Simulated scan of single mutants.
Amino acid sequence: MSENPRPSNVTDGPIHEWFSLSYSNYLVLHRTLLQSMPTEWQERMVACLDELQHAYSHLEQVEAYEVTPSTEHIVGEMTDLQLRMASIDVDLYGGAVPPAGLTGDELAEWQEKHETAEPAYSRNGVELDPVERVLIPTIDPVPHYNRGRTYIEPKISAASPVEPAPGSSPLDHLKAMAGNARNAISHTHAGRTADATEHVHAIERLLTAYHQAARTPKES
């Protein structure tokens, strides 16, 4: 039996649950943030991406997508400026048009008389629902990846160090030291891990030597 059996609905799994109630059809990940994660995390991420790409390499897919940084707005809650920025037309008078040549007072009177309870919204001739969400382009606050040079330190809570139980063997202490060192490395920027990695390797060499010594028969 599989350790991770598929749900009765094969698409109703962790990914579907992660997207929650959103209607998003795509997941956009910022390259700058991805390259700023710990190296160990990046290795896991790349392995998953490679696995996904290989699993669907037989499918025809589009060549490229265009991603535009934007802010999301509900049509019926947008200001006049936001509506203009989104190129949305608003009809407050049920399609009626005021006669030409009205004075200011006459126009105000006409508008008051013909104004509908609910305005109608449209864009490029297509009617929009007041609760529909639209996007307005904006400037991305996350900096460009800059050929892999941009680094933004992530806020990752490191796991608590493992403390061997009182009376533990030297082997247990070495195992705890190696585990704590690996955890520290996974939360350290790649450019500062060389020394820490060497410490882990030294501890692992001690573990190997300890196991070899433990297996060596003692001379009588």
Score class of each variant (00 low, 15 high):
139 I>G: 06
40 E>M: 08
75 V>I: 09
57 S>Q: 14
126 V>T: 09
92 L>N: 11
36 S>G: 02
139 I>W: 00
51 E>M: 11
34 L>Q: 05
29 L>W: 04
144 H>N: 14
93 Y>E: 00
46 V>S: 13
56 Y>M: 09
144 H>C: 11
112 E>M: 13
120 A>R: 07
140 D>C: 12
96 A>E: 06
128 L>T: 02
37 M>F: 02
19 F>D: 13
138 T>H: 06
146 N>F: 01
160 S>F: 07
55 A>F: 05
145 Y>G: 03
114 H>L: 03
41 W>P: 01
107 L>Y: 10
59 L>Q: 13
68 T>S: 10
59 L>W: 08
100 A>C: 09
36 S>Q: 02
99 P>V: 05
104 G>C: 05
156 I>C: 02
140 D>N: 12
149 R>T: 13
17 E>F: 10
67 V>E: 04
29 L>D: 07
119 P>V: 04
118 E>Y: 11
45 M>R: 00
22 S>G: 12
80 D>N: 13
141 P>Q: 07
138 T>E: 03
135 L>N: 07
159 A>E: 12
117 A>N: 08
81 L>I: 12
139 I>C: 08
84 R>I: 00
101 G>Q: 03
69 P>Y: 06
16 H>L: 11
154 P>D: 11
156 I>L: 15
81 L>M: 13
37 M>E: 06
103 T>H: 04
27 L>A: 12
28 V>A: 13
69 P>D: 05
157 S>N: 15
63 E>V: 12
160 S>K: 14
92 L>V: 00
65 Y>F: 08
142 V>W: 04
93 Y>P: 02
73 H>E: 01
118 E>F: 05
37 M>H: 06
98 P>T: 02
154 P>L: 08
51 E>W: 10
18 W>H: 12
81 L>W: 04
117 A>V: 08
51 E>V: 00
29 L>N: 06
47 A>E: 14
87 S>Y: 08
120 A>K: 04
136 I>P: 05
76 G>A: 09
55 A>N: 12
25 N>A: 14
127 E>S: 08
86 A>L: 01
90 V>N: 02
97 V>Q: 10
109 E>V: 06
95 G>D: 03
37 M>C: 05
122 S>H: 06
138 T>I: 02
103 T>N: 04
48 C>V: 09
117 A>W: 00
91 D>H: 03
29 L>E: 10
121 Y>C: 06
91 D>A: 03
114 H>P: 04
54 H>N: 14
153 E>L: 07
69 P>K: 06
132 E>D: 14
136 I>G: 02
60 E>H: 15
98 P>L: 04
124 N>W: 05
101 G>M: 02
37 M>A: 10
105 D>I: 10
151 Y>A: 01
85 M>F: 05
143 P>F: 00
138 T>A: 09
23 Y>R: 13
100 A>G: 11
148 G>V: 04
37 M>T: 08
138 T>D: 07
27 L>T: 09
92 L>T: 08
161 P>C: 10
85 M>A: 12
27 L>P: 03
122 S>M: 07
29 L>T: 04
118 E>W: 07
160 S>Y: 07
117 A>E: 14
